[in-house]
Design a protein around this nucleic acid. Structure first.
Lengths: 240, 240
DNA sequence: AAAATAGTGTCTCTTAGACACTATAGG
DNA sequence: CCTATAGTGTCTAAGAGACACTATTTT
C-alpha cells in the first residue's frame, strides 16, 4: 500500500463523497461462552459442567425487556474485532482472549431501527476471570445455560446467531482446537477437561481414549488436586 | 420475530434516527477461482491444471489501472451474499454456485475513499460456465494464475485477501469438501480430479490412495474418455 | 512390441474405540 | 475393609501412506 498518489488522484478523492450512497450501521455482537460447575455444593465427586452464555436485558426500544447479545456499533477508527473487544471488556472486564468471527447477519429488516448489519464474534472465557459490571443502571447482564434459552424472550435474530455460535463451538471441540482451553483455568485435571468436552459435544467419551488424545496438547504441572475420597489427580496445563 | 409492537415502541422507532452515528459503506468483494488446462495444445497426455482468479482493472481512482477483486456496494434491500451473487453474475454470467464468506476487512484507512468495510466471499466456478462480459468499456476483466500476481499492481488490501482466500481453498481440499467439485465439469476422470487437488494442495498424491478416498464422494457415469494412446478412462460424477 | 496411462492388490503403520485392569485417597 | 475416582495396558478395527503389480489403448 506504499503508493504515490498523483495530483489528479488527490483531486478525485477530495471531490469523492460516499454520502451519495445509502449506508448501513455496522455492529459487532458477541456470543460469550463460559463453563461453570453445575452444583456448587457437591464436594464429593467430580462435578458436571454447565455451558452458559452472556445476555443483556435491553432497557430501550426496540425489544425493550428482551434479552440480546452484548454488542455495539463500530466506530470509524477501529476494526470490527476491536469493537467486539471493547464491548467484551465493558461487560465482563475480560481482555486478551481470542475472538473468532462466526458470521455476518445482513438480512433486510432484521433490526426495526433500520439497516443494521451485525458481525458476530464468538469468545470463550474462563468464568474465574469474569466480573460482570453491576455499576450500570442502563441494563442487566446475566449468564444463561443453553437449556434456559427456550423460554426466554430473545430479541432480534439473536436466537439464530446463538444457535450458529454453538455449532461453531462444537466444531472447535470436535477438532480439538486449542481454544477450548480458554474455558478453563490455567491448570486443570484431565477429568475436568473431559467434562468440558462432554458438555459441549453432548456425549460421553471414554476416559483412556480421551486422555491419550489430549496428551498431545497438555503437559503436567507440579500441582495435584487433593481432598476427595479417592486417589489425587494430577493437574495439567496446555502446551506452549 | 412475530412480535407485537406497542404504540410506545412505534413512537420510539419513528423518532429514532441512525443518522446520529457515523456509518461505513459496506462492500462485497469476490475471489473467483477457476481451474484451466495449462497447455491447450498438448493432446497426448493428461494436462496439468492451473488455478486462476478473476481480477478487474480499475478505470477510476483510487487505484486507477490497478487490478482489484470484483465487487460492489451493498444495497439496503439485499443481504451481503446477494450483493456478491449479483456482482458475480454481472462479471461472469455464473449463478447458482455456493458462496462462502472468508473474511471481513475493516482496517481503518484500507480504502482512501473513506470508511469502507469489505465482506469477502470465495466462489469456485467451472471454467466452461464462465463468460466474461466484454461489452463494458468501464473496465477490463482478466484471469490470472497465482504466480502471475507477484509482478502485478494490486489495489487496496486485495493481495492480502487473495492470500487468505487461497488458504481457505487449501483447507477445502485438505478436508475433501464437496465444493471442490464446483471447479470441474459435471463428469470427469479421476486423474483429472487428482490434478485439481494437486494444483490446490501444491503436492503430489499417490494414485491408489487418492482413488480409494474419492470413491466415497463420486460415482461412475456411463461415459469414458477415449482417444489417448493408452487405456480409456472411466468418467465419474459427484455423488447426490 | 513399445509407450503411456488406467486401474488394482496388498503390506505396513498409525489412530480410534472398547474395555478391563491396577492404584490410591478418605471413611 | 469399602467406595469412588485416578490412571494404565492392550486388543481390535479402520484409515492412510507406500509401492508394485496388471490392463488396455494408440503408435
Amino acid at each position: 500500500m506504499d503508493r504515490k498518489i498523483s495530483k489528479e488522484e488527490r483531486e478525485f478523492l477530495n471531490n469523492y463523497s460516499l454520502a451519495k450512497y445509502e449506508r448501513p450501521s455496522v455492529a459487532a455482537d458477541i456470543v460469550v461462552f463460559r463453563m461453570v460447575e453445575k452444583d456448587e455444593e457437591n464436594k464429593k465427586k467430580t462435578r458436571p459442567k454447565c455451558l452458559q452464555i452472556l445476555l443483556i436485558k435491553r432497557a430501550n426500544y426496540p425489544f425493550k425487556n428482551y434479552w440480546t447479545l452484548p454488542g455495539g456499533f463500530c466506530r470509524p477508527d477501529e476494526r470490527i474485532e476491536e469493537t467486539a473487544r471493547r464491548e467484551l471488556f465493558e461487560e465482563t472486564n475480560v481482555s486478551g482472549v481470542d475472538m473468532k468471527l462466526i458470521g455476518v447477519y445482513s438480512e433486510p429488516g432484521r433490526d426495526p431501527r433500520g439497516w443494521i448489519i451485525s458481525n458476530t464474534y464468538m469468545v470463550l472465557v474462563n468464568h474465574l476471570d469474569c466480573e460482570l459490571r453491576t455499576d450500570k443502571e442502563a441494563w442487566e447482564a446475566k449468564w444463561f445455560s443453553l437449556d434456559e434459552l427456550d423460554g426466554l424472550d430473545i430479541g432480534f435474530d439473536h436466537r439464530t446467531i446463538i444457535r450458529e455460535a454453538f455449532l461453531s463451538l462444537k466444531e472447535y471441540a470436535s477438532s480439538y482446537s486449542n481454544r477450548i482451553f480458554d474455558l478453563l483455568p490455567p491448570s486443570f485435571t484431565l477429568a475436568e477437561l473431559q467434562l468440558v468436552y462432554e458438555e459441549i459435544l453432548q456425549c460421553n467419551l471414554t476416559k483412556q481414549n480421551f486422555r491419550r488424545k489430549m496428551m498431545e496438547f497438555v503437559e503436567e504441572t507440579d500441582e495435584v488436586e487433593t481432598g476427595y475420597s479417592h486417589r489425587n489427580s494430577q493437574k495439567y496445563r496446555r502446551k506452549h
